[in-house]
Amino acid sequence: MICCQTRRGAAVAAFLTGCALSSAAMAQDWPAGPVHVFVGFPAGSSPDTIARIVAEPLAEALGQPVVVENRPGAGGVIAVQQMLARGDDSFGININGPLTTAQRLIPDLGYDPVADIAPVGLIATSPLVLAVGADFPADDLAGFIEAAAEPEAISYGSVGEGSGAHLTAELFANAAGVQLFHIPFQSYAEVTTSILGGEIDSGFMAPSAALPQVEAGTMKMLGVTSAEPFAQVPDVPVIAGTAGLPENFRAELWNAFIAPAGTDPAVIERLNAELNTILADEEVRERLLAMGWQAQPGTPDDLAQRIRDDTALWGGVIDTVQAAE
């Protein structure tokens, strides 16, 4: 790493400063230059928009520019790698995949989601909705499960093998004791087209992808995967506890602010505090909700717990899927 050697002077200076001042005082002076936030998806995607919604007030609070670096690729994994490679003052805003399921799905991940990442805080969560075409025979979850009684009678589209949409559908199928037929797509747009065209029966989709179709009367939403009704689609019943499904059924996608492991704890604390202030802002909450995301302020430990829980949850689903193949 030549870049580290050439930065030795700066590093030595920083070290000396660090010795002289207390860690907390340093976090007050931090940051000395622009802060970089690596986002795993292209400009205009929802993680990118979330990052920009957060970056703007964050830059104001820190008094330094916050540069959003789009490093799309491998479902967000490339951005995590680049954040780790770049080192100082690099952070990431990323989705759950690279932190919870990537180590199971990508053989040469190049990092350990627990050992190499320091959680800063959760930003927002989004549930998925179970959507079917308007002419689907059932109107509720119980009817859907009944229609799916025969193995593989009902097909569903996902946004790829191992995607949140795929794993959520399998989690649901396990919980409901049915066998659904998986057909992978590349985007919710393709899944929507295919449901409208009558090629597939259903799909677990982002609420904002299904909502316009539901308003136009071409699709129906049968259930939502969050623990409580979701503000963007308040009328859709939660899956948990409905039609004989377990009370603790919950599957959510999320976006989180992360840092490389070894980042000064005072810096993480500062960032977490700023993040929570931003997420408490009513305008920010509304902008997120319009895109289908619920702001979720919390501590770094909350995020760490979330990563642990979801790694276990999705790991279990991946085990079942792989065993079935």
């Binding site: 030549i2 870049c3 050439t6 930065r7 622009p34 970089h36 540069v67 670096e69 100082d88 003052d89």
Partner: peptide, 11 residues
């Protein structure tokens, strides 16, 4: 464009 300008300089 977001590019490294000088050796070791932050982008």
């Amino acid at each position: 464009m977001s590019l490294p300008v000088w050796p070791g300089a932050p982008r």
